[in-house]
Design a protein around this nucleic acid. Sequence first.
DNA 1: TGAAAGATTCGCT
DNA 2: GCGAATCTTTCAG
Length: 213
Amino acid sequence: MAAGSARQSRVDEGELRALNPGELPTATIALAKFLLGKILVRDSAPGRVAGRIVETEAYPPGDEACHARSGRTPRNASLFLPTGHVYVYRAYGISMMLNIASEIGGVGAGVLIRALEPIAGIDIMRRRRGIEAVYRLTRGPGCLAQAFSIDPTLDGTVYAPGNALWFADDGVPASRIGSSVRIGITRNADRRWRYFVRGNRWVSGPARLNADP
DNA sequence: TGAAAGATTCGCT
DNA sequence: GCGAATCTTTCAG
């Protein structure tokens, strides 16, 4: 855990470079790939938690699987905001999902954050999740939302450095990026719009989707 | 006003 | 590996 500790101290000391919203690609699929390897930071009362993004899914404009497919409703309104806005919703009555709106606004598209590799605040995440195993803290979209205390009050807020939720770059590029079909959807199920870091232990989904080609 | 579906997780076999 | 739990939102009648 020596390497993990070193990275943790950098995060705690704020030596990360915060990403400005303007640095995010607006194109949905480009954003999904861009976010891999970046660091998600959540500041709240118990302290800071942070993790490296290792799995995303793109829901581009016109995608039949996207929540925006039937037009704008109170629930999905945040998807129609410009790139960098936060879209949070509850799935299956139990799991919160964290998305980042994409495009220039008005069209309804976004990127789902599916998995993170924990970097800082691991004890806080353990407490929130009620489990000890580090490799299960943030594996899967509902799990990471719980570990990061993602709640509906974040829905519709703008991402910006200094806010409760922000992105950072520590200069470590994501390597060995893989793609696959998206998980848990029925429409447009053949589109390979899921992206992940190959070989990373925190990537969710069935093993056959994560295997080398 | 009622019914069905859903970007999941967890536990048990 | 499979199936139940769980509840909000949306659409149809």
